[in-house]
Write a protein that binds this DNA or RNA. Structure first.
Length: 485
DNA sequence: CAGCACGGCGCG
DNA sequence: ACCGCGCCGTGCTG
């Protein structure tokens, strides 16, 4: 049962198979490093100053809430107080100073059970700030400052520094085109055998973490552009980790949803809440918790974790968390989830057993992860190891499938280049690949890449699908990354 | 000045 | 006590 390039599914530890898989992507990662990805530097610089202006205003507003008699707790030098005269006397980027302001001076969160840091102090993490969100008007200001500070320092200010100007000429195929203006490009470093799960990572710069989840953050993603005359083609697996869990656990009702091309979150909600009429499924009360558990169950979601996640979700949707949302409710819901998919917990138990019996677990391709913590005498260390064992095959399978798709896509791109089509892979982000292609061919390339994704688990000799769920991909064709026209 | 631990947070 | 990563600024130390 060979997949692409003779890679197989031995279903037991097989490092030779993994070696072939890990080597097969190197032509593409090497080429991606050399070609780089174009970035709009003036746009990022403008964004940086916009964030900088907003941060200065927010910092001043935050400082205005310092009780006048406590100004000296924030001044680094006595002179600063006098000349500052009501201007910045707090560094909003300092967790220590924010902690003093909120919890010592403003007495926020008195009755609440807030999380503490590893050193025993009350944490000012986003989760804690959400818990006390409505207790003081300064808290939203801190949240807004944090978001801008993260985006500005990590992305707006850093990316332009590492962007290299490509001259015209043979430095890379994209730049050879006479009509293409020289562009500034980022050349990240790909790490292909670093993550335990088999995922590939990149660093300097960290292009796999370009923002998208918040509206303000996705403006940074728009700085990534196709060269003039080119389109960005982005293809990703649709809900692949849930499909992988369905396959690995042989979860019958989950598999049948995918066979019918149904909506897994909707279907989960109906099963777990016992709802017969699809119209009765509420987006926030039923679908949102279902979605969170569908995505989080593989990582060992607990009632506490689910509760915290949903509180964050509600605030992100500008809604206060509803009264019925409690840790106890979350516990009940997770139990209902397992009742809806009864094969999943036994599958997890099998992974726990393997971790304990052999000291390692493996994925269907033969990648191995050692779980030495199961021999620990510390309960929490053992639990940590069991969660790693639970997660491993799902995440690793997803990584192997993406690597197979990458290697096969690069063959397709080589073929296209032999026909004088200008095309380059730019990035691979865990379950997706992003390429740059002459605009006349963008739609066709999108279809080719989607075909590779959708058939990645097909036996190359028989055409039989070697996975229990169908595989589905989504495709976007863009001028700027994740900005639709 | 560089190096480090910490708290915090970006993505899948 | 939710998995896997990389990286920012702060605050301290040598």
């Amino acid at each position: 049962m060979p997949l692409y390039n003779g890679i197989t599914l031995p279903g037991q530890p097989d490092l030779e198979n993994i070696r072939r898989l890990d080597l097969s992507i190197l032509p593409q990662t090497n080429r991606m490093s050399r070609v780089g990805v174009a970035v709009d530097v003036p746009y990022l610089q403008e964004l940086s100053s916009e964030f900088g202006r907003e941060m200065a205003g927010l910092q001043k507003d935050i400082a205005s809430y310092i009780p006048p008699d406590a100004l000296d707790r924030f001044a680094t030098a006595a002179a600063e107080i006098e000349e500052a005269e009501g201007s910045v006397t707090i560094n909003a980027a300092s967790a220590e100073q924010i902690r003093v302001l909120l919890f010592d001076l403003l007495k926020v969160g008195q009755g609440k059970k807030l999380k503490t840091t590893s050193t025993g102090k009350v944490s000012t993490s986003r989760k804690n700030l959400e818990m006390v969100h409505d207790q003081h008007p300064v808290i939203p200001l801190i949240q807004q400052y944090r978001e801008r500070q993260k985006l500005k320092t990590t992305y707006c200010d850093t990316l332009p520094q590492t962007a290299i100007l490509h001259p015209r000429g043979p430095c890379c195929p994209i730049c050879e085109l006479a009509h293409v203006e020289p562009t500034r490009r980022l050349h990240t470093t790909w790490l292909t055998t670093r993550a335990i799960t088999g995922r590939i990572q990149c660093k300097k710069p960290p292009l796999q973490t370009i923002p998208i989840r918040s509206d303000i953050g996705s403006r940074i993603r728009a700085a990534f552009i196709g060269s003039p005359g080119y389109k960005i083609v982005s293809v990703d697996f649709s809900q692949m980790e849930i499909r992988d869990l369905a396959h690995l656990a042989a979860a019958r009702s989950m598999i049948s949803v995918y066979l019918a091309d149904g909506d897994i979150h909707q279907s989960t909600a109906m099963k777990a809440f016992g709802i017969a009429d699809p119209a009765q499924v509420d987006k926030y009360k039923h679908r949102l918790p279902s979605k969170r558990v569908n995505f989080g169950i593989q990582n060992g979601t607990t009632e506490k974790g689910l509760y915290a996640q949903l509180v964050t979700d509600y605030w992100a949707a500008s809604m206060p968390p509803p009264d019925w949302l409690t840790e106890d409710w979350c516990k009940q819901f997770i139990a209902s989830w397992h009742a809806a998919y009864p094969e999943v917990q036994p599958y997890f138990e099998t992974q726990y057993y393997r971790a304990r019996r052999y000291g390692f677990v493996w994925d269907p391709w033969g990648r191995v992860r050692y779980i030495p913590q199961v021999r620990s005498s510390l309960f929490w260390k053992v639990s940590e190891g069991l969660r790693e064992a639970q997660n491993f095959a799902v995440t690793a399978s997803n990584a192997e499938q993406t690597k197979l798709a990458m290697a096969e896509c690069e063959d397709e791109f080589d073929h296209l280049r032999s026909l004088s089509v200008r095309i380059e892979a730019l990035l691979s982000i865990h379950d997706q690949i992003i390429a740059e292609v002459e605009e006349d061919y963008a739609a066709e390339v999108g279809e080719i890449v989607q075909h590779v994704f959708d058939h990645v688990m097909d036996d190359r000799e028989t055409g039989e699908r070697l996975w229990r769920t169908p595989i589905k991909s989504d495709c976007e064709i863009l001028d700027r990354w994740h900005v639709k026209e």
